[in-house]
């Protein structure tokens, strides 16, 4: 896979449009998914995804092949998402949200029987709740939670994408998890 991608990026770098089209095919859904979870609506997400690929095309000559292509394109997309959020509305603060959760309920006991949550039916309502919980995270936490749990990337990869040390990524993921937990615990 990495080899194929390497060949494609080399060809695209030389101006081969077919190779560039193949790169779009590989990454369009991933980038769109990231953008959609960041901004919360299809139209803006598609705009960001398009802009991402246009920037990739315009800056292919600066792409350093010693890094993974995915790291580079995720970085471009993440920055675009955060820039757009900055223009549109003020961020929410996460830092005071973290508090140790108390209180038992039966739902949490029932859920322990759940074997594979990915297989469970995801209702429209749950979709919206998850999106809402994500949108309440500050972008710097939201992007990292999306990269970790929706794009399924490793801590190291995320660290490469946002150019921050792994320890910082861990701290953000811990806080992000606590924030999501407090939003989603009564689901």
């Amino acid at each position: 896979m990495d080899f194929v991608e390497k060949r494609l990026t080399q060809r695209a770098k030389r101006g081969d449009r077919e190779a560039f089209a193949e790169l779009i095919e590989i990454y369009k859904d991933k980038i769109f998914q990231l953008a959609y979870r960041m901004v919360g609506n299809r139209q803006d997400a598609e705009d960001i995804a398009q802009e991402t690929f246009l920037r990739v095309y315009a800056n292919l000559h600066t792409y350093d092949e010693s890094y993974k292509f995915s790291t580079w394109i995720y970085r471009i997309a993440t920055n675009l998402c955060i820039d757009r959020g900055r223009k549109k509305r003020p961020d929410f603060s996460l830092d005071e949200e973290v508090e140790p959760g108390q209180g038992m309920d039966w739902y949490s006991r029932l859920s322990s029987n759940e074997k594979n949550p990915a297989d469970s039916l995801v209702t429209q309502e749950l979709q919206e709740t998850v999106q809402d919980a994500l949108s309440h995270l500050a972008p710097k936490y939201r992007s990292i939670m999306i990269l970790r749990y929706i794009e399924d990337l490793s801590l190291q990869e995320i660290s490469d994408i946002v150019k921050l040390p792994v320890t910082t990524i861990k701290t953000r993921i811990h806080r992000g998890r606590e924030a999501l937990r407090s939003k989603l615990r009564f689901m």
Binding site: P117, V130, A133, M145
Partner: peptide, 20 residues
């Protein structure tokens, strides 16, 4: 606490993957 965190992660992961 752990269960709630695991559930929260599972919810986010199960957010259906939409297509462009």
């Amino acid at each position: 606490h752990l269960q709630e965190l695991q559930r929260a992660i599972a919810f986010v992961q199960s957010a259906s993957h939409i297509q462009v």
